[in-house]
Design a protein around this nucleic acid. Structure first.
Lengths: 234, 234
DNA sequence: CGCACGTTTGATGGACATCAAGGATTGTGG
DNA sequence: CCACAATCCTTGATGTCCATCAAACGTGCG
């Protein structure tokens, strides 16, 4: 494998499921690797869909801006996530921008390569549908939340979500350290960093979390889940 | 055609594009027709994806509720729209509920029939991806709006959107009558019916619209577009 | 040590929801 | 054709959630 992509890596990704050893080998074989420093932009909203990406290691912030320039953070991508799926499969411009928020390594395929792969392994199309549909569900959920829920609830959700996305091997010590600045949480919860700070401070006083600079440690996941409305029966 | 579905009807639908005369005939042949009185429910969020629907004539409100019971109206479906696409293609529960808000006629296919059709006409899978992806974009846009825009702007958008969805043959008389109660607009703009009423009254005073019971007539689409931020260059 | 950056906390105000009550429009039955 | 009910719409008064401004504080780093 000239590109040095370890075999087996792609299996984790939802996109490459069910295409067999041959499919995985083909996809692995034509992948390129790309390294990004923290702060570098991977793709820009509105750009033509030349590449499909898969995050190998690191974190990327996906965000979208409106015509007036208002920005919304959509989600933070982590290892194994696919980026640019809908755009490449449909041949439309990327609907969002992606920026590395820490040093990150990414695999990429050209649109042409993906088209070839799809022709040989039609399962990829079904997988793409699943991914896009899942993303639609996510947006729908965010929409519901933003529209109907209070700030504290949204912040709790945002925290739990980035917790889940980060520490896959959930430390079962009960406490769980989440790398997230107030600003980042604010963007995910559609609120201001001030409100996040106040809320987190209040939680800290109640012993639900322990706050630090650039991170938050979840002490009482139960109570946080109750606040998030993911409540009780968890 | 035993079911009385007029040939040529399906061509309008995004889902059935590019499958040729044979495909259209096959799809038409196995479609069933369903009539709904205003207020009747077509499908319920969480139900297993037994049927795919296509709206033949009428209007259906799609809405989703959270675990806590808060409801969000997603969109109003009109002639030719596909309902249940993501659910049937992926085999997951319907993500939203659909209720007829006027007497409506719907075509339906069972999940099995759709699967057969997809096997024979793979283009259907690509079309489904386009539909789902388009819906994701819509949600993303709504999310951006709800998060960053002021109420007046959102109401303007909601009004223009339902205008576009209703009167396809846009009456070029300059004025355009839109069937929409204040309550419905409020749901689409994620606000209260009171605020909509106030806003519409203000517009009415400025001559942008003319308001009536159950409808709003757009007099100055230009200015409305400016308010919506779809501005000027239209 | 001092700078930069993230965080905290108070004070203020605005946008909008909500409550309340009254007015307009449509349909129904006598 | 008129009275009545049922909706839908309007408009004022009030309150609250949260954004925003301002300023200080803590932490880590060169």
């Amino acid at each position: 494998m000239a590109n040095g992509v370890p075999p087996g890596l792609l299996e984790q990704a939802e996109l490459f499921r069910g295409i067999g050893a041959e499919g995985l080998a083909a996809a692995t074989g034509c992948a390129s690797r790309l390294s990004l420093r923290a702060g570098a932009q991977l793709l820009k909203q509105g750009d033509p869909p030349l590449h499909l990406f898969m995050l190998e290691h690191g974190r990327i912030k996906m965000s979208a801006v409106s015509a007036e320039g208002a920005e919304v953070t959509l989600r933070f991508m982590t290892d194994g996530d696919i980026i640019g799926c809908a755009a490449v499969f449909r041949g439309i411009a990327y609907p969002a921008s992606g920026t590395a928020i820490e040093d990150t390594s990414v695999l990429s395929w050209t649109a042409g390569q993906i088209n070839d792969l799809v022709r040989r392994f039609p399962q990829l199309a079904a997988n793409a549908l699943a991914i896009v549909s899942g993303r639609a569900d996510e947006f729908l959920q965010r929409l519901r939340e933003t529209a109907t829920e209070r700030v504290e609830q949204r912040i709790a959700r945002a925290l739990l979500r980035t917790a889940g996305a980060n520490d896959r091997p959930a430390s079962r010590s009960g406490t769980e350290r989440v790398a997230a600045s107030r600003q980042q949480l604010a963007e995910l919860a559609n609120t201001s960093l001030y409100t996040v700070s106040r809320t987190v401070s209040a939680w800290s006083r109640q012993g639900i979390v322990a706050a630090g600079r650039g991170y938050i440690t979840i002490c009482d996941r139960q109570r946080l889940a109750v606040i998030a409305g993911t409540g009780t029966t968890g």
